[in-house]
Protein backbone atom coordinates (compact mmCIF):
# COMPACT_ATOMS: atom_id res chain seq x y z
CA UNK A 1 0.00 0.00 0.00
CA UNK A 2 2.84 2.36 0.82
CA UNK A 3 5.13 1.30 -2.00
CA UNK A 4 3.42 3.60 -4.49
CA UNK A 5 5.57 6.13 -6.36
CA UNK A 6 3.77 9.06 -4.73
CA UNK A 7 3.34 7.55 -1.27
CA UNK A 8 3.19 9.54 1.97
CA UNK A 9 6.74 8.58 3.06
CA UNK A 10 8.12 9.70 -0.31
CA UNK A 11 6.23 13.00 -0.12
CA UNK A 12 7.54 13.54 3.43
CA UNK A 13 11.08 13.25 2.07
CA UNK A 14 10.25 15.73 -0.69
CA UNK A 15 8.84 18.25 1.79
CA UNK A 16 11.81 17.59 4.10
CA UNK A 17 14.23 18.43 1.27
CA UNK A 18 12.44 21.74 0.61
CA UNK A 19 12.65 22.61 4.32
CA UNK A 20 16.30 21.47 4.50
CA UNK A 21 17.08 23.85 1.62
CA UNK A 22 15.35 26.67 3.52
CA UNK A 23 17.35 25.86 6.66
CA UNK A 24 20.71 25.54 4.86
CA UNK A 25 20.37 28.78 2.87
CA UNK A 26 19.21 30.56 6.03
CA UNK A 27 22.22 29.29 8.00
CA UNK A 28 24.60 30.50 5.25
CA UNK A 29 22.87 33.88 4.89
CA UNK A 30 25.06 36.43 6.72
CA UNK A 31 22.54 39.21 6.05
CA UNK A 32 19.72 37.33 7.83
CA UNK A 33 18.37 39.26 10.84
CA UNK A 34 17.54 36.10 12.86
CA UNK A 35 19.97 33.72 11.28
CA UNK A 36 20.49 30.99 13.88
CA UNK A 37 17.03 30.86 15.42
CA UNK A 38 15.44 30.61 11.99
CA UNK A 39 17.98 28.05 10.76
CA UNK A 40 17.36 25.83 13.79
CA UNK A 41 13.59 26.20 13.45
CA UNK A 42 13.49 25.11 9.80
CA UNK A 43 16.37 22.65 10.22
CA UNK A 44 14.61 20.73 12.97
CA UNK A 45 11.33 20.83 11.06
CA UNK A 46 13.16 19.37 8.03
CA UNK A 47 14.54 16.62 10.27
CA UNK A 48 11.00 15.72 11.42
CA UNK A 49 10.03 15.10 7.79
CA UNK A 50 13.27 13.42 6.68
CA UNK A 51 14.01 11.15 9.64
CA UNK A 52 11.07 11.56 12.04
CA UNK A 53 10.27 7.85 12.12
CA UNK A 54 13.86 6.93 13.04
CA UNK A 55 14.15 9.21 16.07
CA UNK A 56 12.66 8.56 19.54
CA UNK A 57 9.34 10.50 19.81
CA UNK A 58 10.53 12.15 23.06
CA UNK A 59 13.39 13.82 21.13
CA UNK A 60 10.92 15.09 18.56
CA UNK A 61 8.78 16.40 21.44
CA UNK A 62 11.75 18.25 22.95
CA UNK A 63 12.61 19.74 19.55
CA UNK A 64 9.02 20.88 19.03
CA UNK A 65 9.08 22.62 22.42
CA UNK A 66 12.35 24.32 21.34
CA UNK A 67 10.67 25.45 18.08
CA UNK A 68 7.80 26.95 20.07
CA UNK A 69 10.23 28.79 22.36
CA UNK A 70 12.11 30.19 19.33
CA UNK A 71 8.82 31.42 17.86
CA UNK A 72 7.65 32.80 21.21
CA UNK A 73 10.89 34.76 21.71
CA UNK A 74 10.65 36.09 18.14
CA UNK A 75 13.95 34.46 17.17
CA UNK A 76 12.54 33.53 13.75
CA UNK A 77 12.15 36.04 10.92
CA UNK A 78 12.06 36.18 7.12
CA UNK A 79 15.42 36.45 5.38
CA UNK A 80 16.28 39.23 2.92
CA UNK A 81 14.83 38.43 -0.50
CA UNK A 82 15.86 40.39 -3.59
CA UNK A 83 12.59 41.23 -5.32
CA UNK A 84 12.31 42.67 -8.84
CA UNK A 85 10.71 46.11 -9.11
CA UNK A 86 6.97 46.25 -9.88
CA UNK A 87 7.43 47.38 -13.53
CA UNK A 88 9.87 44.51 -14.00
CA UNK A 89 7.07 42.15 -12.89
CA UNK A 90 4.62 43.71 -15.31
CA UNK A 91 7.15 43.43 -18.15
CA UNK A 92 7.76 39.74 -17.34
CA UNK A 93 4.02 39.11 -17.09
CA UNK A 94 3.59 40.59 -20.60
CA UNK A 95 6.29 38.28 -21.99
CA UNK A 96 4.67 35.01 -20.88
CA UNK A 97 1.06 36.23 -20.80
CA UNK A 98 -1.62 33.60 -20.42
CA UNK A 99 0.98 30.82 -20.55
CA UNK A 100 1.71 31.72 -16.90
CA UNK A 101 -1.66 30.22 -15.99
CA UNK A 102 -0.71 26.78 -17.38
CA UNK A 103 1.55 25.51 -14.56
CA UNK A 104 -0.64 27.20 -11.93
CA UNK A 105 -3.76 25.47 -13.24
CA UNK A 106 -1.80 22.26 -13.78
CA UNK A 107 -1.67 21.76 -9.99
CA UNK A 108 -5.46 21.42 -9.53
CA UNK A 109 -5.87 19.97 -13.04
CA UNK A 110 -3.35 17.15 -12.67
CA UNK A 111 -4.51 16.54 -9.08
CA UNK A 112 -8.12 16.07 -10.21
CA UNK A 113 -7.25 13.79 -13.14
CA UNK A 114 -4.85 11.78 -10.98
CA UNK A 115 -7.52 11.34 -8.27
CA UNK A 116 -9.95 10.03 -10.86
CA UNK A 117 -7.41 7.57 -12.29
CA UNK A 118 -5.76 6.74 -8.98
CA UNK A 119 -7.07 3.19 -8.70
CA UNK A 120 -5.76 1.92 -12.03
CA UNK A 121 -2.59 3.91 -12.62
CA UNK A 122 0.77 2.23 -12.12
CA UNK A 123 4.32 2.70 -13.37
CA UNK A 124 6.30 -0.48 -14.03
CA UNK A 125 4.22 -2.54 -11.60
CA UNK A 126 4.49 0.09 -8.83
CA UNK A 127 1.29 1.98 -8.02
CA UNK A 128 1.31 5.67 -8.87
CA UNK A 129 -0.58 7.11 -5.89
CA UNK A 130 -0.82 6.18 -2.23
CA UNK A 131 -4.13 4.26 -2.04
CA UNK A 132 -4.69 5.35 1.55
CA UNK A 133 -4.35 9.07 0.73
CA UNK A 134 -5.19 9.49 -2.97
CA UNK A 135 -6.04 13.23 -2.78
CA UNK A 136 -2.87 14.20 -0.94
CA UNK A 137 -0.73 11.97 -3.15
CA UNK A 138 -2.37 13.53 -6.21
CA UNK A 139 -1.55 17.05 -5.01
CA UNK A 140 2.04 15.94 -4.43
CA UNK A 141 2.32 14.45 -7.89
CA UNK A 142 0.67 17.52 -9.44
CA UNK A 143 3.17 19.78 -7.68
CA UNK A 144 6.10 17.88 -9.18
CA UNK A 145 4.58 17.92 -12.69
CA UNK A 146 3.73 21.64 -12.39
CA UNK A 147 7.24 22.50 -11.19
CA UNK A 148 8.68 20.82 -14.28
CA UNK A 149 6.27 22.76 -16.47
CA UNK A 150 7.03 26.05 -14.69
CA UNK A 151 10.82 25.56 -15.02
CA UNK A 152 10.48 24.76 -18.72
CA UNK A 153 8.23 27.76 -19.36
CA UNK A 154 10.26 30.32 -17.40
CA UNK A 155 13.68 28.76 -18.23
CA UNK A 156 14.55 28.74 -14.56
CA UNK A 157 16.24 25.96 -12.63
CA UNK A 158 14.53 23.91 -9.92
CA UNK A 159 17.03 25.54 -7.51
CA UNK A 160 15.45 28.92 -8.27
CA UNK A 161 12.12 27.24 -7.52
CA UNK A 162 13.49 26.24 -4.11
CA UNK A 163 14.64 29.84 -3.49
CA UNK A 164 11.11 31.02 -4.25
CA UNK A 165 9.71 28.32 -1.96
CA UNK A 166 11.98 29.72 0.77
CA UNK A 167 10.56 33.20 0.17
CA UNK A 168 7.02 31.85 0.68
CA UNK A 169 8.00 29.71 3.70
CA UNK A 170 9.57 32.85 5.20
CA UNK A 171 6.38 34.83 4.51
CA UNK A 172 4.35 32.30 6.51
CA UNK A 173 6.90 31.82 9.29
CA UNK A 174 5.81 29.76 12.30
CA UNK A 175 2.17 29.84 11.09
CA UNK A 176 3.19 27.03 8.70
CA UNK A 177 3.80 24.70 11.67
CA UNK A 178 0.69 25.68 13.64
CA UNK A 179 -1.83 23.29 11.98
CA UNK A 180 0.32 20.32 12.92
CA UNK A 181 0.84 21.57 16.45
CA UNK A 182 -2.91 22.03 16.96
CA UNK A 183 -3.66 18.57 15.58
CA UNK A 184 -1.11 17.21 18.05
CA UNK A 185 -2.94 19.07 20.84
CA UNK A 186 -6.21 17.48 19.68
CA UNK A 187 -4.64 14.03 20.12
CA UNK A 188 -3.35 14.92 23.60
CA UNK A 189 -6.79 16.34 24.52
CA UNK A 190 -8.68 13.22 23.48
CA UNK A 191 -6.07 11.06 25.27
CA UNK A 192 -6.65 12.98 28.50
CA UNK A 193 -10.45 12.83 28.29
CA UNK A 194 -11.17 16.52 27.57
CA UNK A 195 -14.11 15.46 25.39
CA UNK A 196 -15.72 13.44 28.18
CA UNK A 197 -15.42 16.36 30.60
CA UNK A 198 -16.99 18.82 28.12
CA UNK A 199 -19.86 16.42 27.37
CA UNK A 200 -20.48 15.93 31.09
CA UNK A 201 -20.65 19.69 31.70
CA UNK A 202 -23.06 20.34 28.79
CA UNK A 203 -25.41 17.45 29.56
CA UNK A 204 -25.60 18.08 33.32
CA UNK A 205 -26.27 21.79 33.49
CA UNK A 206 -28.84 22.29 30.72
CA UNK A 207 -32.54 21.37 30.56
CA UNK A 208 -32.49 18.75 27.83
CA UNK A 209 -36.18 17.81 28.02
CA UNK A 210 -37.20 20.88 25.98
CA UNK A 211 -36.81 19.86 22.33
CA UNK A 212 -35.67 23.26 21.00
CA UNK A 213 -33.11 23.50 23.81
CA UNK A 214 -31.85 19.99 23.10
CA UNK A 215 -31.51 20.76 19.39
CA UNK A 216 -29.74 24.05 20.10
CA UNK A 217 -27.36 22.39 22.59
CA UNK A 218 -26.39 19.76 20.03
CA UNK A 219 -25.91 22.24 17.14
CA UNK A 220 -24.19 25.00 19.14
CA UNK A 221 -22.27 22.42 21.17
CA UNK A 222 -20.83 20.91 17.98
CA UNK A 223 -19.73 24.39 16.89
CA UNK A 224 -18.27 25.45 20.26
CA UNK A 225 -16.49 22.17 20.79
CA UNK A 226 -15.02 22.46 17.29
CA UNK A 227 -13.90 26.01 18.10
CA UNK A 228 -11.98 24.62 21.08
CA UNK A 229 -10.55 21.54 19.34
CA UNK A 230 -10.15 23.10 15.90
CA UNK A 231 -11.65 20.02 14.27
CA UNK A 232 -15.23 18.84 13.76
CA UNK A 233 -14.10 15.23 13.70
CA UNK A 234 -13.00 15.47 17.34
CA UNK A 235 -16.27 17.13 18.39
CA UNK A 236 -18.61 14.70 16.60
CA UNK A 237 -18.17 11.57 18.74
CA UNK A 238 -18.37 13.62 21.96
CA UNK A 239 -21.51 15.63 21.17
CA UNK A 240 -23.29 12.86 19.26
CA UNK A 241 -22.49 10.31 21.96
CA UNK A 242 -23.38 12.75 24.75
CA UNK A 243 -26.44 14.54 23.32
CA UNK A 244 -27.29 13.38 19.79
CA UNK A 245 -27.92 9.66 20.27
CA UNK A 246 -29.33 9.58 23.84
CA UNK A 247 -31.43 12.77 23.70
CA UNK A 248 -32.27 13.64 20.07
CA UNK A 249 -32.65 10.06 18.82
CA UNK A 250 -33.54 8.40 22.13
CA UNK A 251 -36.06 10.92 23.51
CA UNK A 252 -37.21 12.88 20.45
CA UNK A 253 -36.89 10.15 17.76
CA UNK A 254 -34.74 12.23 15.38
CA UNK A 255 -33.73 10.64 12.08
CA UNK A 256 -30.09 9.62 12.83
CA UNK A 257 -28.87 10.34 9.28
CA UNK A 258 -30.21 13.91 9.18
CA UNK A 259 -29.13 14.60 12.77
CA UNK A 260 -25.58 13.40 12.08
CA UNK A 261 -25.25 15.30 8.78
CA UNK A 262 -26.52 18.56 10.28
CA UNK A 263 -24.40 18.02 13.39
CA UNK A 264 -21.21 17.55 11.39
CA UNK A 265 -21.94 20.70 9.35
CA UNK A 266 -22.49 22.61 12.60
CA UNK A 267 -18.99 21.53 13.56
CA UNK A 268 -17.72 22.97 10.26
CA UNK A 269 -19.31 26.31 11.22
CA UNK A 270 -17.06 26.16 14.28
CA UNK A 271 -14.07 25.50 12.02
CA UNK A 272 -14.82 28.74 10.14
CA UNK A 273 -14.62 30.72 13.40
CA UNK A 274 -11.57 29.39 15.23
CA UNK A 275 -7.85 30.19 15.15
CA UNK A 276 -7.41 26.54 16.21
CA UNK A 277 -8.21 25.50 12.62
CA UNK A 278 -4.94 27.13 11.63
CA UNK A 279 -4.54 25.63 8.18
CA UNK A 280 -7.86 27.13 7.05
CA UNK A 281 -7.76 30.45 8.91
CA UNK A 282 -4.30 31.45 10.17
CA UNK A 283 -2.09 30.03 7.37
CA UNK A 284 -4.11 31.79 4.62
CA UNK A 285 -3.90 35.08 6.55
CA UNK A 286 -0.11 34.68 6.66
CA UNK A 287 0.01 33.53 3.04
CA UNK A 288 -2.02 36.52 1.84
CA UNK A 289 0.22 38.82 3.92
CA UNK A 290 -2.65 40.19 6.00
CA UNK A 291 -1.55 42.22 9.05
CA UNK A 292 -4.49 40.87 11.10
CA UNK A 293 -4.00 37.14 11.68
CA UNK A 294 -7.74 36.77 12.37
CA UNK A 295 -8.83 38.56 9.17
CA UNK A 296 -10.10 35.36 7.54
CA UNK A 297 -12.13 34.48 10.65
CA UNK A 298 -13.60 38.00 10.63
CA UNK A 299 -14.62 37.45 7.00
CA UNK A 300 -16.28 34.12 7.85
CA UNK A 301 -18.07 34.41 11.16
CA UNK A 302 -21.30 36.04 9.89
CA UNK A 303 -21.71 33.19 7.40
CA UNK A 304 -20.98 30.59 10.08
CA UNK A 305 -23.48 32.04 12.58
CA UNK A 306 -26.21 32.27 9.90
CA UNK A 307 -25.70 28.62 8.94
CA UNK A 308 -25.82 27.58 12.60
CA UNK A 309 -29.18 29.30 13.09
CA UNK A 310 -30.47 27.65 9.90
CA UNK A 311 -29.25 24.28 11.21
CA UNK A 312 -31.11 24.68 14.52
CA UNK A 313 -34.39 25.32 12.69
CA UNK A 314 -33.73 22.61 10.12
CA UNK A 315 -33.08 19.97 12.76
CA UNK A 316 -35.98 21.21 14.94
CA UNK A 317 -38.55 21.01 12.14
CA UNK A 318 -37.22 17.62 11.01
CA UNK A 319 -38.03 16.10 14.41
CA UNK A 320 -41.24 14.04 14.28
CA UNK A 321 -44.17 15.85 15.96
CA UNK A 322 -45.17 14.36 19.33
Amino acid sequence: MNNALFSLPHLYILAGLVLAFVAATTALDRAHPRRFGSAFFWGFYALVFLAGDLLPPAWIGAGVVAMAVIAGLRRIAPGPHAMPALDEYVARAKRLGNRLFLPALAIPGVAVVATLLAKQASVGGVGLLDKGNPTLAAVGMASVVALGLACWLTRETPTQGLREARRLVDAMGWALVLPQLLAMLGLVFSDAGVGKAVAWVTTHYIAMDVRLVAVAVYVVGMALFTVIMGNGFAAFPVMTGGVGVPVLVGMFHANPASMAAIGMFSGYCGTLMTPMAANFNIVPAALLELPDKNAVIRAQWPTAVSILVANIFLLYFLLPRP
Binding site: L8, L11, Y12, L14, A15, V18, L19, V48, F49, G52, D53, P56, P57, A58, W59, I60, G61, A62, G63, V64, V65, P103, A104, I107, N133, L136, V139, G140, A142, S143, V144, A146, L147, L149, A150, P158, G161, L162, R163, E164, A165, R167, L168, V169, M172, L176, V177, P179, Q180, L181, A183, M184, L185, L187, V188, N279, V283
Partner: peptide, 23 residues
Protein backbone atom coordinates in the same frame (compact mmCIF):
# COMPACT_ATOMS: atom_id res chain seq x y z
CA UNK B 1 3.93 15.74 21.94
CA UNK B 2 6.51 14.18 19.60
CA UNK B 3 4.32 11.23 18.58
CA UNK B 4 1.34 13.52 17.92
CA UNK B 5 3.50 15.90 15.88
CA UNK B 6 4.83 13.01 13.74
CA UNK B 7 1.38 11.54 13.16
CA UNK B 8 0.01 14.83 11.77
CA UNK B 9 2.77 15.65 9.23
CA UNK B 10 0.31 15.02 6.38
CA UNK B 11 -1.44 18.33 7.24
CA UNK B 12 1.53 20.44 6.13
CA UNK B 13 2.34 18.50 2.94
CA UNK B 14 -0.34 20.11 0.77
CA UNK B 15 0.98 23.55 1.83
CA UNK B 16 4.71 22.92 1.29
CA UNK B 17 4.75 20.91 -1.93
CA UNK B 18 3.20 23.47 -4.36
CA UNK B 19 5.32 26.38 -3.01
CA UNK B 20 8.23 26.09 -5.49
CA UNK B 21 5.93 26.20 -8.53
CA UNK B 22 3.80 29.05 -7.22
CA UNK B 23 6.88 31.05 -6.15
Amino acid sequence: IGAGFLKTRNLTLAIILPLATIG
